[in-house]
Design a protein around this nucleic acid. Sequence first.
DNA 1: CATGAATGAGGCTTCATTCAT
DNA 2: GATGAATGAAGCCTCATTCAT
Lengths: 194, 194, 194, 194
Amino acid sequence: MAKRTGEKYDAIIDAAVRVIAEYGYHQSQVSKIAREAKVADGTIYLYFENKDDVLISLFNEKMGAFISDVETALGEVPSAVEQLRELIRLHFEYLESNSQLAIVTQIELRQSNPEVRKQIGLILKKYLNVIDQVIQRGVEQGLFHDDFDPRTARRMIFGTIDETVTSWIMKDCKYSLKDQIEPITKLFLKGIGK
Amino acid sequence: MAKRTGEKYDAIIDAAVRVIAEYGYHQSQVSKIAREAKVADGTIYLYFENKDDVLISLFNEKMGAFISDVETALGEVPSAVEQLRELIRLHFEYLESNSQLAIVTQIELRQSNPEVRKQIGLILKKYLNVIDQVIQRGVEQGLFHDDFDPRTARRMIFGTIDETVTSWIMKDCKYSLKDQIEPITKLFLKGIGK
Amino acid sequence: MAKRTGEKYDAIIDAAVRVIAEYGYHQSQVSKIAREAKVADGTIYLYFENKDDVLISLFNEKMGAFISDVETALGEVPSAVEQLRELIRLHFEYLESNSQLAIVTQIELRQSNPEVRKQIGLILKKYLNVIDQVIQRGVEQGLFHDDFDPRTARRMIFGTIDETVTSWIMKDCKYSLKDQIEPITKLFLKGIGK
Amino acid sequence: MAKRTGEKYDAIIDAAVRVIAEYGYHQSQVSKIAREAKVADGTIYLYFENKDDVLISLFNEKMGAFISDVETALGEVPSAVEQLRELIRLHFEYLESNSQLAIVTQIELRQSNPEVRKQIGLILKKYLNVIDQVIQRGVEQGLFHDDFDPRTARRMIFGTIDETVTSWIMKDCKYSLKDQIEPITKLFLKGIGK
DNA sequence: CATGAATGAGGCTTCATTCAT
DNA sequence: GATGAATGAAGCCTCATTCAT
């Protein structure tokens, strides 16, 4: 049924990002997204199953592509320490240059219904796997300690990055995320204790 | 005018926690909360301004009390390192012994509308201040490095704790959060890098 | 959930009959029925599960009561021949004095969706059973032949009555159905052949 | 301007019969009929004014042809009694050998909108005239009584046949309609009364 | 002739809130 | 203070029809 490709498919997803970023999740009706995409309401249903599908596809297209990019980029970096820095850098750069997308994925889509959040969770899992691989590599290379649970470390890395981006959005993106790359990398590596 | 105290005030808040934990945010109608609290729908509006007010009050009563407890408890611990460990311990113990509340505050209330989340943010700010004080103390005591931005560290600490609790809930609270106290404290202090 | 009794329950059903009779099935929106019943749209859902439930309940209340009346009335008539005449008389009198109801049950509700028609069919089955009993009684009393399949006769009786009422409605109820009681009874008993 | 003839005209009507018989009136969208007919949606509008026109044309083509056949066939039968039997036989045989068509005309098209049903009624009128002629002939030939209203008898005959076919479809065409020809003819002629 | 992508009007239902009792 | 019946606004989705190619 739903086409899932084409010019209008992209136009609708991009319109959804803009509308949700501007008006918030609860004020982003299908008709508003359609108007922003310059298509009729019904056209949305030629490309998506339903409204949920628009939101899931939005996350999948934008974050899915990002995750693939990260995977590729990290493949070209040998050192796990550098991989960690690169991961943080890519994450921050991607969202900083797409602040509307950041608002949508970090804030607004988290208010969506269970089905959407479930699908988002599945997509995010791939990102968590990437983090896991960096940690595992670091241990193997002898660059990281080997006396911590990798899942604990993964939750620290993801939780910190996530909270950092959320804080940045809450402060209206007023400062640059890039300035956080080094400090956070360093904290992860050395901790706060002397 | 909302009463904000009394037996039924508490009954309604506790009912809200149970209903939201069981049915999820989007399936927790005022009438369902009223039924669970054994009061009439209209009675809720004698104690609260509106539904948002119930949710905000819920967070304020439950987490506000917790935050005060943490402040008090940390006052009795001299070392910042011990304060950090104690903060994590209290956080995990509180939510582990109130898993319904954990579900509500960590997962469900995050789907609420902007007004509720804004108020929750304000309440959380006090908690972030507590974390800030621990960090500041650690630097002053010479137990923590002094070359990191305290706000960065605060976001690491809060983000990691938050993500850890969320993960634990997503895994149906199957393991014990307490086992995470030491590993996380250690990671914060020493980092992952050799 | 749905109350299924009370003053407004009846008001809504009666409003539905009037609206459907006047505007036709496809132009009888819930809001129009609510307005006719002088209640809010949402009030309908305090008394009925959904729109289908209104229509099924309408048929059940109006025809169900009628069928019970017929059963009772026939119990007081010993002769099967008289029972047959009485059945036809009651059927015609009931619909003739409720011509709006006749329009709704004979014409409009037959355009409804499968679920409604299925429920209507179940209710009608009771009526067909009443006819079956008259036929069986007639055979037992030696008043009817015993060489026909009772189901064939039942279909003749019901089909003829039904077609007669439908024709009468299509001719805008211009003539009296009561004048058809004797002719039809006689046809059923004696047939058309010499 | 609608073409109303040609290979695709027939293909569309036949596709409509199959689709409506399989999916039911309310699930028979224009696009589904087009797909079944292996034409584009828009092509239907080259051959028909609109969707209603498809349904009316369907009834007209299928039942109109049948009615003409009946007229012709009865012309070759002198006795009104035999004509009556032949009418029933042709009716049952035609629908029994076209059970999909029977489902469409007896059940599904009756859910259509007022305009379609009005047109169907006009087409059926010719069939009712055929019945009228048989009755008139029977009276003239002295084979039928002359003390009944011919319209009453016509409604009996048509109503009974119609109800018989509907019952047969509702019982999933499990028995043979042909077995009903004699019993029904006999009932019409002799009635049920001794 | 034929296509099929695009259109856009229209309705059922939910649920936070009120207010007469 | 407490009740709970009543309110009514608001949005997702379907599908007959059109028209540029």
